[in-house]
Structure formats: C-alpha cells, structure tokens
Design a protein around this nucleic acid. Sequence first.
DNA 1: CTGAATTTTCAGTAATTTGTGAAAATTGTA
DNA 2: TACAATTTTCACAAATTACTGAAAATTCAG
Lengths: 180, 180
Amino acid sequence: MKITPMTQSLVLHFGEMGSRWGLNRTLGQMYAVIVLTEAPLNADQISEALQISRSNVSMGLKELKSWNLIKLHHIPGDRKEYFSAPSDIWEIARTLVVERRKRELDPTLSTLRDALMEQPSNESDEYAQMRVKQMHDLMEMVTLWSNEMQGMSSEKLSALLKLGEGISKILDVKDKLLLR
Amino acid sequence: MKITPMTQSLVLHFGEMGSRWGLNRTLGQMYAVIVLTEAPLNADQISEALQISRSNVSMGLKELKSWNLIKLHHIPGDRKEYFSAPSDIWEIARTLVVERRKRELDPTLSTLRDALMEQPSNESDEYAQMRVKQMHDLMEMVTLWSNEMQGMSSEKLSALLKLGEGISKILDVKDKLLLR
DNA sequence: CTGAATTTTCAGTAATTTGTGAAAATTGTA
DNA sequence: TACAATTTTCACAAATTACTGAAAATTCAG
C-alpha cells in the first residue's frame, strides 16, 4: 500500500511519540496508519506501508489487540484478516485511559496495599507508610474516575471535557446544587 | 545510607514501574527513595542506597530536576546538595500531569495543527485530515484541563477527584445550576 | 586566588529492547 | 482429509538506551 506524504509525516511523528506513550515506535506507526486510513487494512498492507517485516506487523497487531485498540474484519472471499480503529475517537481515548490505568496504576496500587499491611519496624518506616497511604488514596481516586469514564458515553465524555475551566465554578456551587 | 526492607521492596517496585511511566528503572527507584524518606538526601546517599554509580545519580537528578519533581536544600556547614520531594502528594501529582502533558501531548498537538493547514491532495488525505481534526480537538480539551489543574489548589483538586461517580450527576444538573 | 570538595560530562561498555527471516502452527477450502 | 494460504513464534541480529569510571568543570572556604 502506498501512503500519501501527509499520512507519511503523521505516521513518522506518531512513531516518535509512540515511545513516550508506553508503546514503541513501530506500534505508534502502525496505529497511526490504521487510524488514518478509512478502509480496514491487512497485515501485508501495513508491512508494505511502513516498510517493516511481516513478522514485526504480526507482533504489533498482537499487542494492539491486547490494548483493545483495533477491530477485526473479514472480507468475503478473502482469507486475510483486516484491521481498523474505532471510528469514534472518544472510544479510542476511553480505551487508552483504561488500558494505561491497568498497566500503570493497578500493579502499583496492589503493591502499595501490601506495604500498608506491614508492621512498620521503625520511625522511617512509619514515615514511608504515611507517604504510601497518601499515594494509595490518590491512586484509588484516579482509578475510580477511570472506571467512571469507562462507562460514559462519548457524548457525555465530550461534554465533561468541554467544561474546561468551568469545572472550577461547578465545584464551587456543587454543594448547593446537590442539596436541592 | 541503609534502607529498610519495606522501603527496599517499594523502591524495587517503583523501579519496575518507572519504565511504564516514561521514566526509566533508575529514575523510578531514585524518586521512590526520595519520596519515602523524610530527610532530604544527598547524591552519595542515593548512590549507596540504590547501589548505583555516583555519575548515574547525577544524571538521574538532572532529569528529575527537568521534571520539577525535586526540591533542593542546603545544610549549613555542608557543601553537599540535598534533595527532597514535595511533602504535598497532590503537588507531585499535579506536576506529573503537567510534565507528561508537555512531553506527550504538546508536540503532537503541534504536528496535528500543521497537518490541518495542509491542502488535502485526494480523498484519503481528506479522511486522514478529518481524523486529525478529531484528535486535535480532543487533545486540546485535555490540554485545557491540564492547565486548569495546574492552577488548582490541592484541596480543590482533592475535592474534584473525590467526586468520583458524582461527576455524572453533576453533569446532568449543570445547566440548571449555572443558569441561576 | 588556591585548592580541596563536589558535581557534571562523556566516551566506551553493558544491558535491554526491537526487528528479522525461517520455520512452525493455524486456518479454511476444495 | 489434504494442502495452500496465512499467521504466529522464536532464535538470532541490529539498534537503542542505560550505566560506569575517569576526567573535566564548578563551587566555595580560607
């Protein structure tokens, strides 16, 4: 598959960013080309578009699947598998947040809980445990939000984000409002 | 500096997670030991506690400084520099969000803007540009939030996060409330 | 200003991560 | 079931990233 110069430069950029996003260069490039192309693509097309080996594409797809970021299609009369990204960008964002939470927060939350169960052996352990408690509570709240987000419709999510600076005002009046 | 078993296991865990957090193993370990220790530490103490070279610590501190994650102290009569983490965990979280946004979103936002300025050369470019527009708008909203967060007090931030599932309800009644 | 203490830099090496081709496994159709 | 098409796995190679010790630079007390 040929790729337009515009897509090409976006793909390169997403490759660069991929590493900063917990993925890696190839994964970033692969997802870019999938997101930016309307028709579902098969592994060979991706391999050709990005000039990477077929086996590398296979591994990349495996990982994108584990992130729930791609949809699988079958084209009648064609044995190949075709892949596309969700058409709703909010769905992609929601998935990214949830999956990153699973990878970045959940394991730590569990380690922090373990540390809280331990008996502090001295003063410095007591301090450490106090810090652990703070981190734990904060991360638990973030987890709650991420769960909340998971269940929100794209419309609602969009409305929430659009609040932007309005959020501060809302916080100020929230108590009054909810008491009615 | 000796390190208690409890701190030790937390440090190891944060090392593992470090890589998932856009830092790296050593950076994760370094920040863990700094956050979990009450007294500010100097480079030699960190080097000893983590069993890594003095030069590695120097490079790590440089990076932690660039993330605005550590505070510098001087102890009278001692020429060494001492480092600590903010005592307010919310401040740490706020800084992390802002710095990650700088690294993960800002460069992409600018690339997306560039792509939007270009003249689509054909139908597939038109589709790509439509996707770019969606991503751009979404990321811009997230940026707005991150800026908002930057200016929020720890108390307010905490209150906001505590809303948790309440956020949905608030969204539902927001229009009514703000119209009064 | 001198020089000892301290921090930073950097070139080389070590460790880790990523990518490939070939072979194995799987899939689906005839 | 047989077999060709397709996908996956995996051992090795390539590329990238992280770590070290030695040397250079900086800092500051006297």
